[in-house]
């Protein structure tokens, strides 16, 4: 059952992608349908239906959070760069990670690199090495917040 549901959802996603890439033109739908089918098969083969369960609510929450934060991040660093005097207090931090190894941690590291004031430097076995632009800010709290958001998307509610 999960396989059929996953195939359906992924098929819809690939169809939307095709529609976008073809800019809404309809004359190539024959080819499109064949490619959508092949893409769905390949995706089920490479990433089995049981391996990936995304929560739509978690995804929406993460998306809005990320959008707001990346606007904050860009503005903050732009102000820092354009201000007359550089007011930075950089530091290297090692923070413990609670997310399981693999994709979740890579996602965390990449997200943190795009959020205000943090830059991922190294993913260790238990800790994440971060460079921060201003060590006076509550970094650990923000990292925990991002971890909780990612856990919510992957359905690993803490």
């Amino acid at each position: 059952m999960t396989v059929i549901a996953a195939a359906l959802w992924r098929g819809v996603a690939f169809a939307l992608l095709w529609w976008t890439l073809a800019e809404g033109r309809t004359e190539n739908w024959g080819l499109g349908l064949a490619i959508i089918g092949l893409a769905t098969l390949a995706s089920l083969r490479l990433l089995p239906a049981t391996a990936l369960r995304l929560s739509p609510r978690g995804l929406l929450g993460f998306g809005t959070f990320f959008l707001v934060q990346s606007i904050r991040a860009g503005t903050q660093v732009a102000i820092m760069a354009l201000r007359h005097r550089l007011d930075l207090a950089p530091a290297m931090l090692e923070l413990p990670i609670t997310l399981p190894p693999g994709a979740a941690r890579i996602w965390l590291a990449n997200t943190l690199s795009l959020l205000p004031g943090t830059l991922s430097v190294d993913i260790g076995a238990t800790h994440l090495r971060l460079h921060v632009l201003d060590r006076r800010l509550p970094i650990a709290h923000e990292v925990a917040q991002v971890e909780a958001r990612i856990a919510a998307v992957l359905g690993m509610e803490k």
């Binding site: 860009g74 820092m80 930075l88 690199s113």
Partner: peptide
């Protein structure tokens, strides 16, 4: 590191 902050955040926005 600080330069990476500038590029990843400002340019992406």
């Amino acid at each position: 590191y600080a330069r990476l902050h500038a590029l990843t955040k400002a340019d992406n926005l």
